[in-house]
């Protein structure tokens, strides 16, 4: 029995299957819950995978090595966001100016509020550099964090938490404030909560998802340019 498990443990298929099953279970629970915000499938899925790794005693680094294939699919999926964007091209063209203005303000507020609040809570420069890129997609956030003296691994965790929080809280919050336009919801979710937020916005509508994806991409660019300046000024 032990020999069998040792063999299975070394097979990527085992961990790929576990991850996909965790997602299907999480998504099923989300649907079964009546699509409650707190039952967000990314949140549940991450919790299920962590629980399974802990129960099976599988080190995270080994697990990640086996499921690289799933992680890799983030790349083509990001490219795929061009399709819903193109289907909204007329609105995108007509609204380019307000979108760019909202992007600039959202990006500055995203970095600036993290730095100001962080200082208020007495965090040192390293932790501020770790926090500041929290609203951009993981690979960029980690690179920015490393470049400015932060802790990239912690940044990756913070980025995930930021995205999950946005995925859980954004729609109920924006609905309560009567900000129901899918374009507005999607764009704000993409600025504040990158790809995980975008996955949530896609559940609202393909328009919300398209503008979330656009906002995520643009925010990655703007944050890379602004973060060094804001960190030098406020960090």
């Amino acid at each position: 029995m032990n020999a069998v498990w040792t063999t299975l443990q070394a097979q990527p298929a085992t961990w790929l299957a576990l991850t996909v099953l965790a997602w299907l279970l999480a998504d099923g629970l989300y649907v079964r819950s009546g699509r409650r915000a707190l039952c967000n499938p990314v949140l549940l899925g991450i919790a299920l995978v962590m629980l399974a790794l802990w129960l099976l005693g599988e080190p995270y680094a080994d697990y990640f090595g086996h499921v690289r294939l799933i992680h890799f699919l983030l790349g083509p999926a990001t490219v795929a966001l061009a399709v819903p964007l193109y289907l909204n091209i007329n609105r995108l063209r007509a609204l380019a100016l307000p979108l760019l203005l909202a992007l600039a303000i959202g990006s500055v507020v995203g970095i600036g509020s993290a730095l100001l609040l962080g200082r208020l809570f007495g965090l040192d420069h390293n932790l501020l550099a770790t926090l500041a890129p929290k609203s951009v997609t993981t690979p960029i956030a980690m690179a920015l964090s490393a470049q400015h003296g932060g802790l990239p691994a912690l940044t990756a965790g913070i980025v995930i938490v930021t995205g999950v929080l946005c995925a859980v809280a954004a729609v109920p919050l924006l609905n309560a404030l009567k900000l129901r336009d899918p374009l507005v919801q999607g764009f704000a979710i993409g600025i504040a909560g990158h790809g995980i937020g975008t996955a949530r916005a896609l559940q609202v509508s393909s328009t919300a998802g398209a503008f979330a994806g656009l906002a995520m991409g643009l925010n990655a660019l703007v944050t890379s340019l602004l973060l060094p300046l804001l960190l030098a000024w406020m960090g």
Partner: peptide, 10 residues
């Protein structure tokens, strides 16, 4: 959403 699980479990 599925594609975020490997990094998220980190």
């Amino acid at each position: 959403g599925l594609f975020f699980l490997p990094a998220g479990a980190g």
